[in-house]
Design a protein around this nucleic acid. Structure first.
Length: 837
RNA sequence: GGGAGUAUGGCGGAACUGGUAGACGCGCCGGAUUCAAAAUCCGGUCACUUCGGUGGUGUGGGUUCGAUUCCCUCUACUCCUACCA
């Protein structure tokens, strides 16, 4: 594609000028209203991908728009720089992971600079820098002292090949994501943060997040998983002990016919000591999917039913009872729980219905293979009979509490956050273990605990536990020998507070309270939906924890959240079933061929990924078409929250548009038409300008793009059909450059420099146009709800006048021929509907 | 199993609180320009039609003067989550 517009020169020119004039460097100004725009910071993996381009383009539109609207905009960027890929790369290159990381940061920063983003680079951070992570070590110590961080044995996902713990999300179908080895469960002593303390607050505060997508709030709410029920103690028959269960259906207590405990329950452990059969049973269970096959081991123990004298329930050890949820013990009511029913049928356990559907007679109620779990009326339940489920729950809980055999109880699915990772490239956990067995926080003045310098990075140096000179230390106070904690933090630790650090990223302290008061919360946070739970929940927790540690007074970090869709691309497969990269594809008629000339089949449209080989490199696009073209395409067509399909024709269209804008400026330079006014065009343009504002406010940038096309089309028509005056042409171009500024800022400045003053376009005020009320209104005329005619009428006409005008219209007359008007509906400015018979 | 969402031309998608369905872009068709092509520019483009109209927003129904929009039914697809007692 040829063009006269040299994007390379023009884009570089404006980027340099913005930088030279420090246009995007922000200073706190309490007299100015602030706006904090933040996009999720990238992991420095090597180069940016289209997902980044989309994410940062969206954020840049908001940042530039808000700046022009007069806000003091904070729009920072940084690097989520700790993580496993750096270690893997370091092993290959035998260099410190730091080298690889900083190299990538350099490359990616250059790429971001070429996109022309309105970022304040003065605030840039890299989380692997000791001046960054020392603060989170301090936070951790504060949490430790406040009882918010603690250590306990926990089961982890252990990759036997990579010899490391994996996070849950790194285990795919039971195998390590990198090694492919079957992941083992292993008990390790781990550090935890007490996020569960905030379960209730994390849940209820979701309501206050009005500018969050509902979807994300529902996901978090499900994850937190609050359920209201009760605990009930069952006395073990003939013994002094009892087993406590958690249930959300205490109303079905009279239908209880067995009790089941998990394979890891304390009682199970006790029985295990004497019973080898149970041991065999547990081993047997390991290979079984308990969701499909329910297995149980009948112990010779029973519990007494708390409300039926003399009734005893057998105790089973069952594979479907989870130790992690509730108390690892349940009472089984087969009639009203599918799992219990499946289990009961397998082991011939009695089934007693205690809830009946409202419109079915008790006699006709049969439960065989399907449990009844809906609303109904209680039966077979002594003093609960005749009550509705909710009433029965209240009553039975009262009884339980009176008898002192249980209590109302709220349970959460949310578990405490395990933050220990057996990795090198992470933030060291600032703890020492003294030889006398004491676990101590590292003293403040010894922070940061830095990672060791390693010249030759090998497998053995890739874990801190192997580096004895680093590991061995002394307790400063007592002089006793000690060794350091060799685990590092989960990298979600760094991303849980980076948005605070941006307030003043070079400060000696983590931040200044007055800065937090001014800048936070983030007004608009933008990122992928994949962080809906983990990152966003951890950040919310961190904010609340730091608040309680008196760092500031803030409940929620992100006031507005926007989750963008993915960038997708069609996939191609050759005859051998291998994926083929788009750049190796050629189109011949309706068919596609690869480099070797063989046919290629098109497959599904999928998220751009290396494995599917359907990736388009932003670098190539910016080289050939420029940043404005890439940005414009990212914003066109698809609503930001939906997936965006990458197409070559789409990028070509964007390129065409950028060139058209340039040609418009060239045209202006030589434009000499002297015909004066065409108010019709100018009025139309003013209307469009306001519509662009509305669509930006609503985060519907695809519509902004459509409106801008309309602007240019209207302007072109104004020039060719109505011979717009040069002054009006100039006015139009100036306005155009303003509304283009958030989207494609380089060409916007270029236009402005030809028609505006000497200042920068980005420093102008966003245009707000006054619309003249139109003299003539378009009115649609419907007969029986079907539009027959559109006419223009004087906007001052009253209903009667309007009706008269309409009835004089030829088409309307024709349609009314031989009919009788039954009703006349008039919606001013919109329609007239004549109902006829 | 549970939860959330989506469905409009050949394609991506518009249509404000119910009021002109298909804006805008792509693609396609025709024309101009060109030795020719690319690029560019202009015009057309939901379907059927006897050129009067008629039908049309996944399916079937309902509310209404009027439904892409609200309510119910069904279907298809996407995403999340998963023994949570």
């Amino acid at each position: 594609m040829s063009s006269r517009y040299n994007h390379k020169v023009v884009e570089k020119k404006w980027q340099d000028l913005w930088s030279k004039l420090k246009v995007f460097e922000t200073i706190k100004d309490v007299n100015k209203k602030k706006y904090y725009v933040l996009e999720m910071f990238p992991y420095p993996s090597g180069k940016i991908h289209m997902g980044h381009v989309r994410n940062y383009t969206l954020g840049d539109v908001v940042a530039r728009y808000k700046k022009m609207k007069g806000y003091n905009v904070l729009h920072p960027m940084g690097w989520d720089a700790f993580g496993l890929p750096a270690e893997n790369a370091a092993l290959v290159e035998k260099k410190h992971p730091e080298k690889w990381t900083y190299q990538n940061i350099k490359t990616m920063k250059n790429q971001l600079l070429r996109m022309g983003l309105s970022l304040d680079w003065k605030r840039e951070i890299a989380t692997c820098h000791p001046e960054y992570y020392k603060h989170e070590q301090k936070f951790f110590i504060d949490m430790f002292n406040a009882g918010l961080a603690y250590k306990k044995e926990a089961e982890v996902n252990w990759d036997p090949v990579d010899k490391t713990v994996l996070a849950n999300e790194q285990v795919i179908d039971g195998r390590g994501w990198r090694s492919g080895a079957v992941v083992e469960k292993k008990k390790l002593s781990q550090w935890f943060l007490k996020i569960s303390k905030y379960s209730d607050e994390l849940l209820s505060d979701l309501d206050s997040l009005k500018n969050w997508p509902n979807k994300v709030k529902i996901m978090q709410s499900n994850w937190i998983g609050k359920s209201v029920g009760s605990e009930i103690d069952f006395k073990v028959s003939g013994q002094d002990t009892s087993i406590t269960v958690f249930t959300t259906r205490p109303d079905t207590i009279f239908g209880a016919t067995f009790l089941a405990i998990s394979t890891e329950h304390e009682l199970t452990k006790k029985i295990l000591k004497q019973n080898n059969d149970l041991n065999n049973f547990i081993k047997e269970c390991e290979g079984i999917n308990s969701e499909k096959i329910k297995k149980g081991f009948k112990t010779n123990m029973y519990v007494d039913h708390p409300f039926i004298n003399g009734k005893k329930l057998p105790i089973f050890v069952a594979n479907f009872v989870l130790q992690e949820y509730g108390l690892g013990a349940i009472f089984g009511c087969p009639a009203h729980d599918q799992r219990d029913l499946d289990f009961a049928n397998e082991y011939n356990i009695e089934i007693i219905p205690v809830v009946k559907p409202i419109n079915i007679d008790e006699k006709d109620l049969k439960i065989t293979n399907e449990a009844f779990t809906q609303d109904g009326i209680i039966i077979n339940s002594n003093f609960l009979n005749g009550l509705k489920i909710e009433e029965a729950k209240d009553k039975i809980i009262k009884e339980i509490e009176i008898k002192n055999i249980g209590r109302k109880k709220i349970n959460f699915k949310l578990r405490d956050w395990g933050v220990s990772r057996q990795r090198f490239w992470g933030c060291p956990i600032p703890i020492i273990y003294r030889e006398d067995g004491k676990i101590l926080a590292v003293e403040d003045d010894e922070l940061p605990v830095k990672l060791p310098e390693i010249k030759n990075f090998t497998e053995s140096s890739s874990a801190l536990r192997n580096i004895s000179e680093w590991k061995e230390t002394k307790c400063k106070k007592t002089g006793m020998k000690a060794y350091r904690e060799t685990d590092t933090f989960d990298t979600f630790f760094e991303s849980s507070w980076y948005y605070f650090r941006y307030c003043n990223s070079r400060l000696k302290e983590p931040f200044e309270r007055s800065d937090i008061d001014y800048w936070l919360p983030v007004d608009q946070y933008i990122g992928g939906i994949e962080h809906a739970i983990l990152h966003l929940l951890y950040s919310r927790f961190f904010t609340k924890a730091l608040r309680d540690l008196n760092y500031f007074n803030l409940d929620e970090p992100f006031k507005g959240l926007f989750t963008q869709g993915m960038v997708t691309h069609i996939t191609y497969k050759n005859n051998s079933g291998e994926w083929v990269e788009p750049r190796d594809i050629e189109r011949v008629g309706n068919k596609f061929i690869d480099k070797n000339g063989s046919n290629v089949e098109t497959g599904k449209i999928e998220k751009m990924s290396k494995s599917k080989r359907n990736v388009v490199d932003p670098n190539d696009i910016i080289d050939s078409y420029g940043a404005d073209t890439a940005r414009w395409f990212m914003l066109s067509d698809s609503p930001p929250e939906r997936d965006l399909q990458w197409t070559d024709t789409g990028i070509a269209a964007s390129y065409k548009f950028i060139n058209k804008l340039y040609e418009l400026v060239e045209k202006f330079k030589n434009y000499e038409t002297k015909n004066p006014n065409d108010s019709r065009t100018i009025e139309a343009l003013k209307k469009i300008i306001n519509e662009v504002s509305n669509t930006i406010e609503a985060f519907q940038f695809n519509k902004s793009v459509a409106k801008i096309y309309e602007f240019v089309n209207t302007l072109s028509d104004g020039l060719s059909k109505y011979r717009l005056s040069k002054e009006n042409f100039k006015w139009s171009l100036a306005k155009l450059s303003l509304i283009l500024q958030p989207f494609i800022p380089h060409i916007s400045e270029e236009i402005w420099s030809n028609v505006g003053d000497n200042s920068l376009c980005i420093n102008q005020e966003w245009p707000v146009e006054e619309i003249k009320s139109e003299l003539n209104l378009k009115l649609a005329i419907q007969i029986n709800g079907k539009t027959k005619e559109i006419i223009e009428i004087d906007s001052n006409l009253e209903k009667d006048g309007v009706m008269e005008t309409i009835k004089r219209n030829e088409r309307v007359k024709k349609n009314l021929l031989g009919k009788e008007i039954v009703r006349e509906i008039y919606v001013p400015g919109k329609i007239v509907n004549l109902v006829v018979k």
